[in-house]
Design a protein around this nucleic acid. Structure first.
Lengths: 319, 319
DNA sequence: ATAAAGTATGAAACGCGTTTCAGCGCAAGA
DNA sequence: TCTTGCGCTGAAACGCGTTTCATACTTTAT
């Protein structure tokens, strides 16, 4: 492999000059610049990017940690991040964690070893203290409300969104409402849970733990929900559903089971996935792509800002 | 930042010994090993991975180039790649190209600059000669039938799959068949096209160019297809559809337009996305996850193997 | 007891680009 | 005419871990 010193020698200049040409520094005579460029071309030279990274102490790479790749929520988020990365000439290293704390830590660790300049966490299992600890090695941005913590973040007010959906259902005459959620931990889930609990209290209803369906992430999880529903004597009349995938699963399975939506079960999804529009599912749109873009911007910003983005209620025909 | 020399000094050994400890080489006395490990711990030392990369001449990173991230086909493929990468301790750098030849070349370029040890191309726009040229810098694997070219590849016989679907439709009594496709170039698309042309010839039908719908990738593209269909005087009775997303879009839009599936239009999708099962769409399953896994294995293998994986016809109720 | 083989360890070279610092030449301002 | 100061260059140091080679000390085999 030919290196910068070979170029310097052949062009009869110093390595500094070659480096300047490579980095488009001023203060190189046009004549020498041309000469160096020609030699570079002749020898088919290319910088060893690892040496550049070592030298500069940065890599123009950002790690993106997410639990799963093959999920519309995360892939749209990722697409948002990627679009900004592309524009700003950054590379993305993806770290699928399956919510494994150790995997997440490995990703954060890349900051310490200088493999990446920053980390974007789309959804996390690890503790705040872990994340705060790693911040000394580089910027970290998350996708949830961090409250008063000094961590870069973009988020949607899931509490307000859930509340609005619950009020909407109530106005439509539904009182027996349940909900589906991905996992019980996680800031966003807890916010939703909080809104739900307050709702139940407010209408003086007993809390039905069996109306809360955990582990709902994909279409297939929607099926399971309907499976449980049909076995219940006392069913909810409406469900707030984790995301549109699960909502679609529920709707499709209801049809199979001879239940009508919204007649026998009203549902409200989240995300506003294109499919929800086709299947006429009422949903709450989250600006996922924009969130991804903002995440990237944040991780590149100097101070740890917090940005809230708005959700949007979209009325269709599943309620 | 503390480096390996600081450790060596404080532990009273040479850098070589520290390096040996770091890399779990044999030939380090247990006593010194412990000592070094302790100093490493005390000084909170961590290798600068960029120096390691420079030194070793490899990075344990693989670039994955794909046109879009936010598409089930590619995200499942990517998930397959990621699962293997995780297992083999490799990192993935994703490069979204939007089928821009220049973006693809930038990704390949990372091989030359030693940023990655290999490149996986999920779908390409650039020419074979470009790819073959970059092979001198490292292994490249693609996801299509490369015929007699010496390039690592995993693929499904799209010609056979299309042919089988066409025969199935014919047996079911459909003769007026059209198809949807993502783009007209690309090996897989060309194979499908080939199968279709042969079919049309075989049944002595005229070729209806308006029955071929290009640019179909997402649910929304399915809508457009139905939009065009309803305007036609002479419509096809059945469509082979790029993938299940488009098929779902078509099915949903047909319902809106008062057309029944399969009554007014039979459809066969591809991929076997979980949703197609719920919506009872007949489809041809492609082993996407396995393809992703195989891609990863291939890019790590010594010689440029070619592996064909089987598709699977799944009969449901859209025909 | 002695050669052969294995275990341990350090010095130095290597991978390679960036950046700082010193210095020279020439032009503009005093 | 003398001083600044900008334009341009190169030597050398720097970022940092890995690996080769030489060396010295132990064991094991003969």
């Amino acid at each position: 492999m030919t290196n910068i010193r070979d170029i310097a020698k052949k062009a009869g200049v110093s390595v500094s000059t070659v480096s300047r040409v490579l980095n488009h520094h001023p203060y190189v005579k046009e004549e020498k610049r041309r000469l160096v460029e020609q030699v570079i071309h002749e020898l088919n030279y290319e910088q060893n990017i690892n040496a550049v990274h070592l030298s500069k102490g940065k890599t123009n790479m950002i790690a993106v940690v997410l639990p799963f790749i093959n999920h519309p929520y995360f892939s749209l988020l990722l697409e948002g991040v990627a679009s900004q990365a592309l524009e700003k000439q950054y590379q993305l290293v993806i770290c699928q964690t399956n919510y494994d704390v150790q995997k997440e830590e490995e990703a954060l660790h890349m900051l310490k070893t200088k493999q990446v300049d920053g980390v974007i966490i789309c959804s996390r299992a690890s503790s705040w203290s872990t994340i705060e600890h790693y911040q000394q090695y580089g910027p970290i941005a998350v996708c949830e409300n961090v409250q008063n913590r000094s961590i870069r973040s973009v988020y949607v007010d899931h509490y307000a969104a859930f509340k609005q959906a619950l009020m909407y259902l109530k106005e439509k005459g539904y009182t027996d409402i349940g909900y589906c959620i991905g996992r019980m931990t996680g800031t966003n889930s807890l916010q939703r849970q909080q809104a739900y609990k307050e709702y139940v209290e407010r209408i003086n209803q007993p809390y039905h733990p069996e109306w809360v369906f955990q582990g709902c992430l994909n279409v297939t999880d929607g099926e399971k929900v309907v499976g449980k529903l049909v076995q219940m004597k006392n069913r909810p009349q409406a469900l707030l559903v984790t995301n549109d995938q699960v909502a679609i699963g529920i709707k499709a399975q209801c049809e199979q089971a001879g239940m009508s939506v919204p007649g026998d079960l009203a549902i409200i999804g989240f995300d506003n996935h294109p499919l929800s529009s086709y299947l006429q599912i009422t949903t709450i749109e989250l600006p996922l792509k924009e969130m991804g873009e903002t995440l990237f911007t944040l991780v590149g910003s100097k101070d740890p800002q917090k940005i809230e983005l708005p959700f949007r209620f979209i009325e269709r025909k599943s309620v």
